[in-house]
């Protein structure tokens, strides 16, 4: 395989947590910064609570590959219980970073995952979601945490762009927009690790 010129991201969630939406939203946001993007969900059992995955690719040049992401640079885990039931660290090698929605510390989470703590980031996205959006929908705060960990992305322009997207998506439910934006900002600031 050629050296990797693109960033690949894998999202793990449970049906209903918004893993697909987060991957698409992230791609749109990154496109606004002038990079090429791809975002796609893995379609399988489409039921509430079932383990689901979605993916992003980011590159400075056009992306033509259309196979699955098997060696992600970043893994985002929306539901900590997936650490026990899904091989979430598959393919990350010695460099891939894992961001987990959990109330546990970086060290405890790293031990749980069986990988070095230098590869682990944590943020209590569920708590942030409850406090800002009013329910446990961890996808937007984890999106904020990912923006921080990937680096190279400006928070304010991400928030501006996301606001526009949410205004379109939630034009019939404007009250949820501010909470979602707040959740992104808080997770961006509160994510810990490395």
């Amino acid at each position: 395989m050629a050296e990797k010129k693109m960033i690949e991201i894998r999202w793990h969630g449970r049906g209903g947590q918004g893993a697909k939406t987060a991957a698409l939203l992230f791609a749109e946001t990154v496109l606004a910064t002038g990079k090429y993007v791809q975002a796609f969900p893995e379609y399988g059992p489409e039921r509430m609570g079932a383990p689901v995955q979605s993916f992003d690719r980011i590159s400075d040049s056009p992306i033509t590959v259309h196979c699955a992401v098997t060696e992600p640079d970043f893994v985002v885990i929306l539901d900590p219980s997936l650490m026990d039931s899904v091989p979430v660290t598959d393919g990350i090698g010695g460099k891939g970073k894992v961001i987990v929605n959990t109330s546990f510390s970086v060290e405890d989470t790293a031990k749980h995952l069986g990988i070095p703590s230098s590869q682990v980031y944590v943020v209590n996205a569920s708590q942030i979601a409850v406090e800002t959006i009013g329910m446990n929908i961890p996808n937007t705060p984890m999106f904020g945490a990912l923006v921080k960990v990937v680096g190279d992305l400006n928070l304010e322009s991400v928030l501006d762009d996301t606001k526009k997207k949410l205004e379109l998506k939630f034009r019939h439910k404007p009250q949820v927009i501010e909470g979602n934006l707040q959740s992104i900002r808080r997770a961006f600031n509160e994510v810990q690790g490395a």
Partner: peptide, 12 residues
Amino acid sequence: TDGFIISHCMEV
């Protein structure tokens, strides 16, 4: 288009 691979893949 190829189902899911393109139909559900967001790209530029």
